[in-house]
């Protein structure tokens, strides 16, 4: 089988998965903020932004990929990596199987190569629907491999993060993925690579405290929750209510932790502009 055949097969698989998911989902979806109901097609056409209140709905990785990549240019990598459940954690295997069936993904990270306005990039997207986008061994390994691939092929690296942090069910293995991914992107950057880290709602814990905070340029979507310790943990620790907007993207921008906030509508063109400026 040639590599092209694998591409084709893979693409066919993805398309069929997307179709299945479309059939399974109700035609309408509800905005978590204003509760407005809309057809999925209309919401998708509006880049998954609520047409009533402007709320940014979370996006499945393939939706995000379709939004930023040139049409049909995405080729997935390592799409079948599955956790070996290193702790033999109760019910974890069953949970993974159920999520695989529901999303078509084997874990919370989809990665591959694509083009953005003609420029070839290594792209990865975390999925907050899959165990909160938590980083276990599969997510860590796929981020590392994507980063090493980008390094070998001299491609820019773009990662969209959306994560609750560590994968509880993988214990200390999960913690070590912070070391792996941080080391990989650090090395990639030292060798001249461009890493654009794009933080979406929510980016917290072990993901925000590792590779996601190490972008050459760090971008975020408006109002995204970005933090190390979540609001609930802080409230429990200091016992007081948090100020309005605390830990949201605008707050981080004000405190010097982000380069820019980028609206979803301008996502693709912003990435293109930055990529074009860094073309060698």
């Amino acid at each position: 089988m040639t590599i092209d055949d694998i591409f084709k097969q893979r693409k066919k698989r993805w398309n069929s998965l997307i179709r299945i998911r479309r059939n399974e989902t109700v035609e309408e979806c509800e905005c978590p903020k204003c509760k407005q109901r809309e057809t999925v097609d209309k919401v998708r056409a509006n880049k998954w932004v609520c047409r009533n209140c402007g709320y940014y709905l979370s996006m499945a990785p393939m939706e995000r990929i379709q939004m930023v990549c040139d049409e049909g240019s995405f080729r997935e990598m390592n799409g079948d990596f599955t956790s070996e459940d290193p702790l033999h954690f109760p019910d974890y295997g069953k949970k993974l199987t159920a999520l695989h069936n529901a999303t078509g993904q084997t874990d919370a990270f989809v990665s591959g190569v694509c083009r953005i306005a003609g420029i070839k990039v290594a792209l990865g997207v975390l999925d907050s629907r899959f165990l909160m986008g938590s980083m276990g061994t599969v997510v860590g390994e796929k981020i590392l491999r994507l980063t090493e691939y980008a390094g070998r092929k001299k491609l820019p690296l773009i990662i969209f993060s959306a994560s609750g942090g560590a994968r509880m069910q993988e214990g200390l293995f999960s913690l070590m993925q912070m070391a792996k991914t941080a080391a990989a992107v650090d090395r990639f950057k030292q060798n001249g690579g461009l890493f654009l880290s794009f933080l979406t709602n929510p980016t917290t814990g072990g993901v925000s405290a590792s590779f996601a905070s190490l972008g050459d340029i760090i971008l975020a979507e408006p109002d995204a929750l970005i933090c190390f310790a979540g609001p609930r943990v802080i409230q429990q620790t200091i016992g007081q209510t948090l100020p309005e907007g605390f830990q949201h993207a605008e707050f981080l921008l004000e405190h010097g932790m982000l380069d820019a906030i980028v609206e979803r509508e301008k996502c693709r063109e912003t990435l293109y502009k930055l990529l074009a400026w860094h073309q060698k």
Binding site: A209, S213, C227
Partner: peptide, 8 residues
């Protein structure tokens, strides 16, 4: 910037 400090 707790996240950034740990990551660095």
């Amino acid at each position: 910037g707790q996240s950034n400090a740990i990551a660095e």
